[in-house]
């Protein structure tokens, strides 16, 4: 099996398209970092304590206003609480871009990484058919099951490589361009002010983004294997990845969408506590995704193993 993965990896990196994918990713990461550096004005925040004090005064003044709506009241109360927290705990706000901020940007482009992995994912099987190389590949003392497994593993290896490149590069570039954070961000959880754990948030964003990542790759791989057409597979999986929530909105009038993978594949819904349709548990989402993942994999293998090769 190791030999087969080695083969697939070799073929993948001999294609120009694979290098184009890597270049696009590098350009986005480096480009956004450099643009941030060039266009963002450095703010001198040495007198942040006075500013926080001013914010408290401002909030108090605003709260005096008669007939203030409930939403505004809450906003000014929170502004007051946070400013007070900063003064009490000597916690300066983070006003400039930082290494941590750049790393968070890395986590936010998981959608791009997914898109870029879908392309080889859709073509790794289908291109063997369109090129006619499939008959050279399958007339070997290796079962079709192993051939397909090696291809699936290779695609996930490729995707994880892109993720790793993103993590390392956003960290290094962030550190070089901006340096580590000098302040802290605050959030209010259940009415209590807390310091944000940025690293934990970045980590969770990466982990929860694996939902879309995994499902899109499996879907592209499945379509590419069944229809042996790279273009159909790439188009369909990109459509579902980009328009997934919209498709669900449209469909929900007609069918019970909570049993469709598109409703659940964006697991960051659970992180943000904002849901496309209605709140579900993480367990429910994972269960639905698991079932679809098994269906996609099973159909890919069944068609690939049974098919008569005429290419």
């Amino acid at each position: 099996m190791f030999n087969l993965i080695q083969n697939e990896w070799m073929k993948l990196w001999h294609k120009k398209g694979t290098w184009a994918i890597l270049v696009i990713l590098l350009l986005v990461i480096i480009g956004v970092g450099v643009l941030d550096k060039v266009f963002m004005e450095e703010v001198n925040d040495s007198d942040w304590k006075q500013e926080q004090q001013a914010m408290i005064t401002d909030a108090n003044t605003q709260l005096q206003t008669p007939d203030l709506d409930e939403w505004s009241i809450q906003m000014y109360e929170e502004q007051k609480e946070m400013a007070q927290y900063r003064l009490d705990n000597n916690a300066a706000p983070q006003v400039n871009q930082s290494m941590e901020g750049n790393m968070a940007f890395g986590a936010s482009i998981m959608v791009l990484i997914t898109l870029l992995t879908v392309i080889p994912g859709a073509s790794i099987v289908s291109q063997e058919f369109t090129d006619g190389t499939i008959k050279m590949l399958l007339t070997r003392p290796v079962s079709r099951f192993k051939v397909l497994t090696s291809k699936l593993i290779t695609i996930f290896l490729f995707g994880f490589t892109l993720i790793l490149v993103t993590i390392v590069l956003t960290t290094v570039i962030g550190f070089i361009l901006f340096g580590t954070a000098t302040g802290v961000d605050l959030t209010i959880v259940d009415g209590v002010v807390q310091q944000t754990n940025t690293m934990k948030d970045i980590f969770l964003t990466y982990v929860y983004s694996l939902g879309d990542f995994t499902m899109s790759i499996l879907f592209a791989f499945f379509i590419g294997t069944v229809f042996s057409s790279p273009s159909i597979a790439i188009a369909l999986s990109m459509l579902f990845l980009m328009m997934g929530p919209m498709i669900i909105m449209l469909l929900q009038k007609y069918i019970p969408v909570e049993y469709i993978w598109l409703t659940h594949s964006d697991l960051t819904q659970h992180l943000r506590k904002e849901f496309f349709i209605e709140e579900t548990t993480l367990f429910m989402s994972l269960a639905v995704l698991g079932v679809y993942a098994i269906i996609f994999i099973a159909l890919s293998f069944m068609t690939f193993i049974k098919r008569d090769v005429k290419a």
């Binding site: 070799m10 073929k11 001999h14 294609k15 120009k16 090129d131 006619g132 190389t133 008959k135 050279m136 007339t139």
Partner: peptide, 12 residues
């Protein structure tokens, strides 16, 4: 085996 034209990986 050679089945019809030997289609090899052209990019390698």
């Amino acid at each position: 085996v050679i089945v019809e034209n030997p289609e090899m990986y052209k990019y390698m």
